[in-house]
Design a protein around this nucleic acid. Structure first.
Lengths: 109, 109
DNA sequence: TTCACCTGTCAGTAAATAATTACACATGTT
DNA sequence: AACATGTGTAATTATTTACTGACAGGTGAA
């Protein structure tokens, strides 16, 4: 996994609202209007966060018809787990390019 | 650990530059000017990132005198590790406040 | 038809973050 | 003294991210 992907993955989850979304959907799958109600936030805003989470692969959304024929968009958590520590970060960053260490005179180092 | 703290911890690390900083300092402790040179960035900017990382507890900085009497600020990585998964997130979020689910008429649900 | 639900998007604003530039000041060397 | 190297911060701008409000539909029931 590239550094960019790794960062995208971490930044996608690093937000209080998105933490609450994951927590709520971990307990039960819900459709967006219901979820918006429970979290006390506007749908457009929820959408933004849901999209961010879905793009990052944390959530999966599907449109399904209720018995009454109404379309409801349900989201559910896609199981995931990852660990962050110096080793994982070093691996994600990869070998840092050699920085041409020319002696540039004889610096005070 | 509270939700706010948890988020602060994750957001503090979720940045490409900060990933590179952690990776570089994992290999060896360096002072900020040297680190700025290696990462190819300005010192003020590096400072900002270093402060963010230090506040979050990922780094530890100490001012030490070089043999020539110059003050050098060295930073080193403070070992850490944490896992992110639905369970950890649910735990961080804590019990979501009950949302007063009154029947509000007899909705189409 | 009107009401109460729902999905989905767009335009615009507000706020948080990142990044740059320019300083002040200290030490050792030439 | 002038120069190279270092720490540290303040002020400003740029960029990204989060958020709000207003739409345009669609379905079923009163």
């Amino acid at each position: 996994m590239s550094l960019e992907e790794e960062i995208a993955k971490v930044t996608a989850i690093a937000h209080p609202t998105r933490y609450r979304i994951i927590a709520a959907l971990s307990a039960e799958s819900l459709h967006v209007s219901e979820l918006a109600r429970r979290l006390g936030m506007s749908r457009p805003l929820l959408y933004m966060h849901l999209q961010r989470l879905e793009e990052a692969g944390y959530l999966s959304g599907r449109l399904e018809l209720s018995p009454e024929g109404k379309a409801l968009k349900y989201f559910e958590v896609v199981p995931f787990t990852f660990t962050i520590d110096p080793a994982a970060i070093t691996a994600a960053v990869g070998p840092l390019e050699a920085p041409d260490l020319e002696p540039k005179k004889e610096s005070g180092k």
